[in-house]
Design a protein around this nucleic acid. Structure first.
Length: 441
DNA sequence: CTCCACTTTGC
DNA sequence: CAAAGTGGA
C-alpha cells in the first residue's frame, strides 16, 4: 500500500490525524502541498497570507526532512492534480484533514472521483475543536448567538486529545516531481514590503509552540487586560492557527494544563470556533450579509478619499491610525483596535464593510476565511449578533479608555495627533443611527 | 409561553 | 442608566 497525504490548512506534524494515519504504511508515503489558485469559489490568498505560507512551507519542509520525508509541491486545480499525483506515485490511499469552508465542495467531489477509481480516501477532523455538525440547539439548528454556542460547546463536549507527531514515515522509493517554492513568488521582491512582517513573526510549527509556551508562562494571567493594546497581552497565535501550525485542540489542552484564570482566553478560541461553524452552515461570509435585512442598507461602495485615509492611517483618529499602521507595517492589528477601525469605516465613513474586509484580507497575516468576514459583519451590525444597531464606537472615547497614556498611539502613529479628523463624529453617528433605524422600523 | 441574557456603547 | 430586539431553553 502506498499513501498520499495531502496537507492543506494543517502545516504541522503533531496532532495531524492524516499524517499519523499514514505511519502504518510500510510501502511508502508521499506528502503533498498543493497551491490551488484556479479552482472556483476559492478565495485568492492576500499578500500577507502568501508571505506567511511561504515561510511556513519552508519550516514544514525542514521538519519533514528530519524524518527523511520530502515535501512535494504542486500547483493547479485539486480535482486534476490530486488524482494525477496519486497515479504518479502509485498511491492506493489518499488522506487529508477536513476543511470546513468553501473548499469542502471540491474535497467532496474529489473524494467521490478517487473512490470511483478504487483509491481509498479518508478524511480526518481538521482545524476545529468540534466538528460543526455536532454542535446544535435542542431543535437541531445551528447556534446564532455566541454565548449559547459556547455554553453548548463547553458543557457536554471535550476536544479530542492531540496526537503526537509521527516518529517515522517511510518515503516512497521513486522520485516524485516537485515544484520549487521560490518559483511560486509568494514573497515580495521589489519592493520588499514584508520586512516589518518578517521582524515581528516567525512562521512554522516549532515557533507556534514556542509562542504558546511564552504566552502561557506569563501573559495569559494578565489576559483580562487584553483590551489595552499597548500592554501586549495577546497570544499572537492567530496566524499560527490560520495555517494549522498548531491545532486548536493542542492550544485548548495545553492551556488547561497550565491552569489559572484561562477561561477568558479559551473563550477567544470559542469565537474562532463560532466563526468557523457559522461559515460552515451559512457561508461563504465575505459577500452576503448574514442578516438579509441589511441587504438594502445604503452603505457606500466607493474606494474614495475617506477610504484612502483609513487604509494608511491618516484619519486623524489616533487609535485608528495607529491600528492601521500596525497592520500595514506588521501584518497584524490588536483585536479591540480592529473593532474600532471597522466601526469607523462602516458607521462613520458609511462605507460597505466588504471594502474594509477586503483590505484586512490582503494585509493580515492571520486573514481567515471565516473569522475575518464574520467579525466585520459583527461590527457592521449585519452579523451573528442580537446587539442593537446603535452600538457605535466613539474612537476618541475608546482611545481614552483603552490607551489612556497614549502609548499605543505614539508607538504606531505619533503624527496622527496633529492631523485634522476627516469626519465629524457626532454628525456621522447621527446619520448612521438614522439609516439603521430606517432599516429596523 | 415566558423569561433570561446579550463581547455592548455613549451620554 | 437607557437605548431594543431576539435567540434559545
Amino acid at each position: 500500500m502506498t499513501t498520499l497525504v495531502w496537507l492543506r490548512d494543517d502545516l504541522r506534524l503533531s496532532d495531524n490525524a492524516a499524517l499519523s494515519a499514514a505511519t502504518d504504511d510500510a510501502d511508502g508515503v508521499v506528502v503533498l502541498y498543493l497551491l490551488d489558485e484556479v479552482s472556483e469559489h476559492l478565495r485568492p490568498l492576500g499578500g500577507a497570507a502568501k508571505w506567511w505560507l511561504h515561510q511556513s512551507l519552508r519550516a514544514l519542509e525542514h521538519s519533514l526532512g528530519q524524518l527523511g520525508m520530502p515535501l512535494v509541491l504542486r500547483r493547479g486545480a485539486a480535482e486534476e492534480v490530486i488524482p494525477a499525483v496519486a497515479r504518479e506515485c502509485g498511491a492506493d490511499r489518499v488522506l487529508w484533514n477536513r476543511r470546513y469552508g468553501a473548499a469542502r465542495d471540491h474535497d467532496a467531489k474529489l473524494k467521490t472521483a478517487l473512490r470511483q477509481s478504487d483509491v481509498v480516501v479518508r478524511s480526518y477532523p481538521g482545524d476545529l475543536l468540534f466538528e460543526p455538525w455536532t454542535i446544535a440547539t435542542q431543535t437541531g439548528t445551528p447556534y446564532q448567538v455566541y454565548s449559547a454556542f459556547w455554553r453548548a460547546c463547553t458543557s457536554g463536549h471535550t476536544p479530542a486529545d492531540p496526537l503526537p507527531a509521527p516518529k517515522q514515515l517511510t518515503s516512497v522509493q521513486r522520485d516524485i516531481k516537485s515544484e520549487s517554492l521560490d518559483s511560486w513568488l509568494l514573497t515580495p521582491a521589489n519592493p520588499d514590503w514584508a520586512a516589518g512582517i518578517a521582524s515581528r513573526w516567525e512562521p512554522g510549527e516549532s515557533a507556534a509552540h514556542r509562542t504558546l509556551d511564552e504566552f502561557l508562562e506569563d501573559r495569559v494571567q494578565r489576559y483580562s487586560r487584553r483590551d489595552f493594546p499597548a500592554e501586549d497581552t495577546g497570544s499572537e497565535l492567530s496566524p499560527h492557527l490560520r495555517w494549522g501550525e498548531i491545532s486548536p485542540r493542542q492550544v485548548w489542552h495545553r492551556t488547561l494544563l497550565t491552569g489559572g484564570d484561562v477561561g477568558m482566553f479559551l473563550s477567544e478560541l470559542g469565537w474562532r470556533e463560532f466563526a468557523k461553524h457559522t461559515a460552515f452552515h451559512f457561508g461563504p461570509l465575505e459577500q452576503r450579509n448574514l442578516n438579509a435585512r441589511f441587504d438594502t442598507f445604503p452603505w457606500l461602495f466607493e474606494r474614495d478619499a475617506g477610504f484612502d485615509a483609513w487604509k494608511f492611517g491618516r484619519t486623524g483618529f489616533g487609535i485608528v491610525d495607529a491600528g492601521m499602521q500596525e497592520l500595514w507595517q506588521t501584518g497584524f492589528m490588536h483585536n479591540r483596535v480592529r473593532m474600532i477601525a471597522a466601526s469607523l469605516l462602516t458607521k462613520n465613513l458609511g462605507l460597505d464593510w466588504r471594502i474594509g474586509e477586503a483590505w484586512f484580507w490582503d494585509t493580515l497575516v492571520d486573514a481567515d476565511e471565516a473569522s475575518n468576514p464574520f467579525n466585520w459583519q459583527w461590527v457592521a451590525g449585519c452579523g451573528a449578533d442580537a446587539a442593537p444597531y446603535f452600538r457605535i464606537f466613539n474612537p476618541d472615547l475608546q482611545q481614552k479608555k483603552f490607551d489612556p497614556d497614549g502609548a499605543y498611539v505614539s508607538k504606531w502613529a505619533p503624527y496622527s495627533m496633529t492631523l485634522p479628523q476627516i469626519i465629524d463624529l457626532k454628525a456621522t453617528r447621527a446619520d448612521a443611527l438614522q439609516a439603521y433605524h430606517a432599516l429596523v422600523r
